[in-house]
Amino acid sequence: MANVVEPVLTQGLLAALQEERIVTVATIDFEKGTPNVSAISWVYAMNEGTVRFAVDQRSRIVQNLRANEAITLTVMAEESVYSIGGKAAIPTDRLEGIPLKLALVEVTIEEVRDVMFYGSKVSVEPKYEKTYDARAAAKLDQQVLTAIQAY
């Protein structure tokens, strides 16, 4: 059902964003002023109005957000596609207890839009595989998600 707009995450989206999944991040490129889109997975919905994620502190996402706080996250969940718009802040440039240099980004949600095209639904959500050591990946994922939630 397209064109549904909410001021915060629904309970279904809140639950979906507390599980590992692919999320795209759209920011405004600080050099060109054009949209810049990246895919991330270290994302966690803290509550219905706040989403946090971690990215490399040298990421283009971080550079872009320092110049313009506008952000849109896109997620496939609940048989649809949702655009989550808001303002982003970078509470810390370095999450503690993580072997990588990761910045924490906190998004204050302003609107959630169902942007799925008319008369359709997502029948299979995208899946991905980590291409490095599975145990190391699981350990790192847990460290990052714990740090995101604890900050």
Score class of each variant (00 low, 15 high):
15 A>L: 07
126 P>V: 02
108 T>R: 01
125 E>N: 15
146 T>N: 09
145 L>G: 15
55 V>G: 07
140 L>W: 12
116 M>T: 09
20 E>S: 13
82 Y>K: 05
80 S>L: 08
32 K>L: 09
128 Y>H: 08
126 P>G: 09
74 T>R: 09
147 A>C: 03
142 Q>T: 06
80 S>T: 05
45 A>M: 01
64 N>D: 13
97 G>C: 00
8 V>D: 14
9 L>I: 11
125 E>W: 08
77 A>R: 02
105 V>I: 12
64 N>I: 06
122 V>T: 11
135 R>V: 13
116 M>S: 11
119 G>F: 12
47 N>V: 05
81 V>R: 01
105 V>L: 07
87 K>S: 11
141 D>R: 11
74 T>D: 03
127 K>A: 06
41 S>R: 12
145 L>F: 10
61 I>C: 02
71 I>N: 03
116 M>R: 03
17 L>C: 14
99 P>S: 06
135 R>A: 13
11 Q>T: 10
132 Y>S: 00
80 S>C: 07
143 Q>W: 05
108 T>M: 06
5 V>I: 14
16 A>L: 14
116 M>E: 08
47 N>P: 06
43 V>L: 00
6 E>L: 12
20 E>F: 14
151 Y>A: 03
71 I>E: 07
58 R>E: 14
87 K>D: 08
113 R>L: 00
65 L>M: 11
80 S>F: 07
30 F>E: 13
136 A>F: 15
50 T>A: 02
52 R>K: 08
12 G>Y: 10
5 V>N: 13
70 A>I: 05
15 A>N: 07
